[in-house]
Computed example of a mutant assay.
Amino acid sequence: MNVTEATDFPPSLLEIALFYAEAGVDEAIGDQPVDRTQAPPAREAARPAAVPGQAAAPIPGGNPSANPPPRAPAASAPALLSASDVESAARRAARACQTIPELEAAIKSFEGCGLKATATNTVIARGNPQAPLMIIGEAPGRDEDAQGLPFVGESGQLLDRMLKAIGRDEQNTYISNIIFWRPPGNRDPSTEEILACKPFIERLIELVQPKVIACAGKHAAATLLGTTQGITRTRGRWHEYQREGIGIPAMPLLHPAYLLRQPGVKREAWHDMLELAAKLEQLGL
Rank of each mutant, 00 (worst) to 15 (best):
P210G: 08
R161Y: 04
A220I: 10
K164Y: 04
E170T: 09
I178E: 00
T191R: 13
D160H: 13
T223R: 05
S190G: 12
A216Y: 07
A220R: 06
L195H: 03
R203W: 04
I178L: 00
K164P: 02
G167T: 09
H219N: 13
E202V: 10
A165R: 15
C197V: 02
I213K: 13
L159N: 12
G217W: 05
L225H: 08
Y174C: 05
Q171F: 01
T191G: 04
K164G: 12
R203N: 10
I175E: 06
Q171R: 15
S190T: 15
Q157Y: 06
L195Y: 02
C215N: 11
D160Y: 02
E170D: 14
P199V: 08
I166T: 07
R182Y: 05
M162K: 11
I179K: 02
L158K: 10
I178Y: 00
I166S: 01
A222S: 14
I178G: 01
H219I: 10
T228F: 12
I179R: 03
E193M: 00
I213N: 11
I179Q: 01
I205V: 15
A221F: 05
L159W: 09
E206I: 06
E206N: 08
P183K: 13
I178M: 00
Q209N: 14
I178T: 00
S190E: 07
I231H: 08
L225P: 00
I205N: 04
P184V: 12
L207F: 04
T173L: 02
G156A: 11
A222P: 01
N177V: 03
V212K: 08
I201H: 04
G156M: 14
P199Y: 06
G156W: 15
A216P: 01
H219D: 04
I201C: 07
T228L: 08
C197G: 01
E193S: 00
Q157E: 13
W181T: 05
L159Q: 09
N186H: 07
D169M: 03
V208W: 06
A196Y: 01
I201E: 02
K218P: 02
